[in-house]
Amino acid sequence: MVMNTKKSINTAKIIEAIIYFVFIVMILIYIYPFMRLVLTSVGANPNTVPPQFIPSNTTFEGYELFIFNPSMSLWLINSLIFTFGVTLGSTALAIFAGYALSRLNFPGRSFFFWFIIFGMMMPGIMLYVPLFILLIKMRLINTYIGLLVPPMASAYNVFLMKQAFDAVPKDFEEAAIIDGASTATIVFKILLPLIRPTLITMILFNIVWNWNNFAWPWFVAPDRKFWTLPLGVYLTSWSYTVKFWQYASGAVLLLIPPLTLYTIANIYFIRGLRIAGLKR
């Protein structure tokens, strides 16, 4: 008996060691691209392609290029306008549409819901060409309306809000109705606070997606005065010889705000993911 217990303890220890080893390997695989990005950003050597993992010379030229770039403030402002404009509009739209789909009885409700789900199945990039043609016909290329309004329509956000509202028991709402609350009071004072973890998670995801969005702004607002940070980074570093360290330092700069946000909101993220249970 004693022998057996000892044996099983040893087996358990070996299994634990293997699990830890696998974890460590996975973490290294995850960290590697980040390490590579950060290391590349501080070493300039145009003659080595691909760049060395640990650069032979150290330089902050890439960072200087962006930080002291006179257009940097414009890109930053454009990025903030794009990120927060789209996130705000999209969130508002998702709240109202989600509430309507979850709580209001109107003919064609389930048709609309499935229609929106269908939209979710389609890769967003597929819609770019038809949207581009539409925006040209509406003369909205290189305008804020063209840049900000189309990406506000997010099937994923609507779906997420509808599911979150569905999960709130009807009693809360009916108690408020009997107490004399209006629909606006019910939505903003009762329902939204109850789905706060999901809502915050959704907003955070949206901020990150929009902050990193490269293709849409370039597609519909290629004019220099609408350039966002990702566009600025890409188009400044672009030349006949590719300067990897410039791209890399631009990417590191781009990474800082979402990373900070993630860290601060970590607690909400973990709670919200448990509720939302899915990611785009």
Binding site: P169, E174, A175, I177, D179
Partner: peptide
């Protein structure tokens, strides 16, 4: 009449006390 104009109050099985 809608509920708010009836001046009734209701206690629910689940109490429906707002958790936030």
């Amino acid at each position: 009449l809608p509920p708010k104009d009836r001046d009734v109050a209701m206690v629910f099985q689940s109490y429906a006390v707002y958790p936030h």
